[in-house]
Amino acid sequence: MQQAVVDAGRPLPQLTDPLEVELQVSAIVGPFAGNEELWEVVVRHLREVPSRRSAALLTALAHLLPGRPGQWAREAAGQQQEPPWDLKNLTFGECWIGDRSIDAGYLALLCSYAYGDVPHAMVFMIDEISGGLTRHAFLTRQVGEALERLKQQVRLESITAEAAHWLLSRSYDRFERRPGLGFGSDVHHTRLVARRRIKLAMN
């Protein structure tokens, strides 16, 4: 498992899109994010073998891993060169909510973000029948198109980024307590991407 995680960092120095970095790392390391023993070994290895790959993977892990592993990665990344992309340049845009909990049993959330002047959005479907669990979470770079499609399905209202991500925080807390339920693979693949935005919005 350790080698698989380290190998996942191989393409990162060649990437220029910070969003692609987040997606690749989240999809690979998300299932093991809470394994402190694993990350202690991985971070120590990357620190002891400095390279462009080590620096890039440590930087990504510093932004995406929760708790102590993220702090370990942050400290180790500070001792190596910076990668060609910047995950610190994330900004928040508009958020929209649509409530179909009465007739269809779900809430829809669209939250927009940007790296520099390049926008993207995450769209979440929250299952109110199952206690507010996130059933689907996908990412799109076609923000305007996604918003228009969502408007065709549900009446949308503007919501602050803080309020939207508070709802998501509660939903992901429930999801992480019950990871064996039938969620879409998109929820698992993008979980660390979503969790990072939740943390930034609520701090």
Rank of each mutant, 00 (worst) to 15 (best):
A161H: 10
K88T: 13
L156W: 02
G98V: 09
E48H: 06
G184N: 14
V6I: 14
A33P: 07
Q153G: 15
K199Q: 13
C95L: 01
V143A: 01
R191M: 08
Y172T: 08
R191D: 07
V187D: 00
L19P: 01
F124A: 10
L15S: 06
A161N: 14
R74P: 10
T140Y: 01
G184I: 02
W72R: 12
L192P: 15
N89K: 12
A161E: 14
Y115M: 01
E75Y: 05
G132W: 03
L156C: 02
T16Y: 08
A62P: 01
E157V: 12
L200R: 15
L110M: 11
F138H: 11
Q71H: 14
A56N: 09
R170K: 14
K151Q: 13
L139G: 03
A161S: 15
S26V: 05
S158N: 14
L12M: 07
Y172N: 07
Q81L: 10
A137C: 13
F175K: 15
A114W: 00
L12C: 05
E22D: 09
A104C: 06
D173I: 10
L139H: 00
A8V: 04
F124C: 03
D103I: 13
G116T: 03
L107G: 01
G67L: 07
T59F: 01
Q152W: 05
A60E: 11
S101F: 00
A137V: 11
H189K: 15
G132N: 01
G93F: 04
P69W: 02
W85M: 09
Q24T: 15
Q3W: 11
L46M: 05
L58D: 02
A161R: 14
V123C: 06
T59P: 00
Q79R: 14
P11Y: 08
S51W: 07
T134C: 14
L65T: 04
E22F: 00
N35A: 05
A55Q: 03
E162F: 10
A163N: 13
E148T: 12
H165Q: 08
P84Q: 07
K151A: 10
R174A: 13
V154N: 04
P179L: 12
G182L: 09
W166N: 15
Q24N: 14
I129Y: 08
L38G: 07
V6L: 04
